[in-house]
């Protein structure tokens, strides 16, 4: 069986550019109302209400941060408890791994001094929660991704400056390029572009 590999550019979507966020929001609402659902928008500033219009919601990040914080707090106390008290297990095994606890009597305070051990646990809570927030945000956003098909659109050059770009992606079940171009032309956009991509072949 002969196998032909097709590397010609495939449609990625249709983009329309606007010169302000209100026009973008209005257009997004109309495109949504026309029944398209795989939409995205590219803007120089966060546009409030845009994700509501796109009916897209994602609250995973808050949970990621929360559990990172819990883990940091637990790790902080566990570390201090272990090193100052430790488990009643064979010391030889721990010694080999350098994990032997080292109990210290400081002013007759208990070996596991909960209040005095709070600051390191507190700092570790914040540290791990911050890692969760930053790396979680980057990971969920699929970054780093130096090139993305939408960058093939000429109007994206200004999407980080003063253009607001709306995109209907080709994955949309009702995707029909000509129809979308026609719809978008009627929305007061500055330009409409068909975006092709060769990525993923």
């Amino acid at each position: 069986m002969s196998h032909v590999r097709d590397t010609s550019p495939k449609p990625y979507g249709v983009v329309a550019e606007f010169d302000n966020s209100d026009a973008l929001l209005e257009a997004a609402e109309k495109v949504k109302a026309a029944g398209y659902r795989d939409l995205d928008a590219y803007t120089p500033i966060p546009v409030h209400g845009l994700t509501d219009v796109l009916e897209w919601k994602d609250d995973k990040l808050g949970w990621v941060v929360f559990f990172h914080g819990i883990a940091g707090f637990a790790a902080g106390y566990f570390l201090q408890w272990w090193t100052s008290q430790g488990l009643p297990v064979s010391n030889t095994a721990l010694q080999v791994n350098g994990l032997l606890p080292y109990p210290m009597n400081v002013g007759g305070k208990p070996e596991f001094s909960i209040p005095a051990f709070f600051p390191p646990a507190y700092e570790l809570t914040i540290l791990l929660a911050a890692f969760g927030a930053v790396f979680g945000m980057i990971a969920f956003n699929g970054l780093p991704k130096p090139h993305h098909p939408v960058f093939n659109a000429a109007c994206m050059n200004r999407a980080s400056s003063d253009r607001y770009v709306l995109c209907v992606e080709a994955t949309d079940p009702r995707y029909d390029e000509d129809e979308i171009v026609e719809l978008m032309n009627g929305l007061g956009s500055l330009s409409v572009e068909r975006v092709k991509t060769s990525e993923g072949y």
């Binding site: 995205d40 928008a41 590219y42 803007t43 120089p44 500033i45 966060p46 546009v47 845009l50 994700t51 796109l54 897209w56 994602d58 609250d59 990040l61 808050g62 941060v65 600051p119 507190y122 700092e123 914040i126 929660a129 911050a130 927030a133 930053v134 979680g136 945000m137 980057i138 969920f140 956003n141 970054l143 780093p144 991704k145 130096p146 090139h147 993305h148 939408v150 960058f151 994206m156 999407a159 980080s160």
Partner: peptide, 30 residues
């Protein structure tokens, strides 16, 4: 990191910023 200003990215970005601000406030005091 190839930032393209996607609405979905901004949403998480703002979420992360406000969380970081919330974490940094007790941190700076501590």
């Amino acid at each position: 990191l190839g930032w393209r200003g996607s609405a979905k990215h901004w949403h998480r970005y703002e979420h992360a910023s406000i969380i970081l601000a919330g974490l940094s406030t007790p941190l700076v005091l501590s």
